[in-house]
């Protein structure tokens, strides 16, 4: 029986994104978003960061993180609009916006990261 519902795969992406975000986002956001700007820790210099970013493993990992996080956002945001604002009747528009956004964001992430 070949029923092709996208839900299982979307859910897998959402779950993987949730796990990746839970594990990696807090430390990155804390360092770059708060600790360095406020001077709690001295920010690393440009050369160091550039060398880290140029490492292929970093690129792949960051790209994966961005992609999964975006699909995680897309899935949750879609259901938040469905349930939290009771907009389920707009489900097609909402799905296009959310998952389309995630795809577009992932492409952008790829362009930024792999051009370094």
């Amino acid at each position: 029986m070949a029923r092709r519902s996208p839900e299982p795969l979307l859910w897998l992406l959402f779950s993987a994104g949730g796990m990746a975000a839970a594990l990696l986002v807090p430390v990155l956001l804390f360092l770059f978003g708060i600790a360095f700007p406020l001077g709690w820790l001295s920010a690393p210099d440009h050369t160091h960061l550039l060398s880290v970013l140029r490492h292929p493993a970093t690129k792949v990992i960051l790209f994966g993180l961005c992609l999964l996080c975006l699909f995680h956002w897309a899935h949750r945001f879609r259901y938040t609009l469905y349930d939290g604002l009771r907009l389920k009747n707009l489900s097609l528009v909402i799905s296009l916006f959310c998952y389309g956004g995630a795809v577009a964001g992932s492409v952008a992430a790829g362009v930024v990261l792999f051009r370094i």
Binding site: S5, P8, L9, W11, L12, S15
Partner: peptide, 13 residues
């Protein structure tokens, strides 16, 4: 069940 169904879909894919 979600995990089961998703794993299954992934395998099918």
């Amino acid at each position: 069940y979600k995990l089961t169904a998703a794993t299954r879909s992934l395998k099918d894919l």
